[in-house]
């Protein structure tokens, strides 16, 4: 299993304990919280993980917690759990960008599948973030050239399209390779794709 931590928020201690124990038997790192305030205060932005939030809690609902996290720029995959299979709550949750919506009591396999999917989403998210960070170091012209290389165009073709010499394009490619730490066209394609904003 992936090494991402799982952040669990539920006001009911027995539920919290049970889910923690179950996930721990799968070797997952679970950090559980009984109150939204404590949860929001202790969440480490430097340690991305999967969020499991109880929808119905006194004072602050799971959705409100998620909103506050998004306000802080934390958009980690979220699994909403609830005692009510309320269609409206479910719709609102998905609109708010929740990955999955599970109804209590939650079956082991369903929970594991959801967490698996969340981890994959988190990985992609982090890759994108990294790619964006790397691409951010390129100049406008370099990004343009990278885009065309990723599309499979040759230096000569790119030169023709941009109305510059092939030598200039080669210089750009050398700079790009240096900045991204790779000269492989396959890496270029991967980074270019990951760097695009998610659709």
């Amino acid at each position: 299993m992936s090494g991402f931590p799982i952040y669990l928020l539920d006001d009911d201690a027995p539920v919290r304990d049970a889910l923690s124990l179950l996930l721990q038997t799968y070797g997952m790192k679970v950090e559980s919280f009984g109150s939204p305030e404590v949860f929001l205060a202790h969440l480490d932005e430097g340690r991305p993980g999967c969020l499991i939030l109880d929808l119905r809690m006194p004072m602050i609902s799971g959705l409100q917690v998620q909103e506050r996290l998004q306000a802080r720029g934390i958009d980690w995959p979220t699994i909403m759990i609830t005692g009510h299979g309320d269609v409206n709550a479910c719709r609102r949750a998905f609109k708010a960008g929740v990955m999955d919506f599970l109804t209590k009591p939650i079956d082991e396999q369903v929970l594991l599948d959801a967490i698996q999917a969340a981890f994959q989403a988190l990985e992609t998210l982090l890759e994108r973030k990294e790619a964006r960070d790397q691409l951010a170091g390129l100049t406008e012209r370099e990004r343009e050239v990278l885009e065309m290389v990723a599309k499979g165009l040759s230096s000569k073709e790119i030169a023709g399209a941009l109305d510059v010499s092939a030598r200039t394009i080669d210089a750009h490619r050398a700079n790009i390779a240096e900045k991204l730490g790779t000269s492989s066209v396959a890496d270029f394609v991967r980074l270019s794709e990951a760097g695009k904003p998610p659709r």
Partner: peptide, 25 residues
Amino acid sequence: IAHELTQPLTALLSQSQAAMRLTTM
């Protein structure tokens, strides 16, 4: 009541599944 019952049921299910895993480990 349904909401209240959900909580112990959730705990029961997850604890039981965890216990089953523990016995096989």
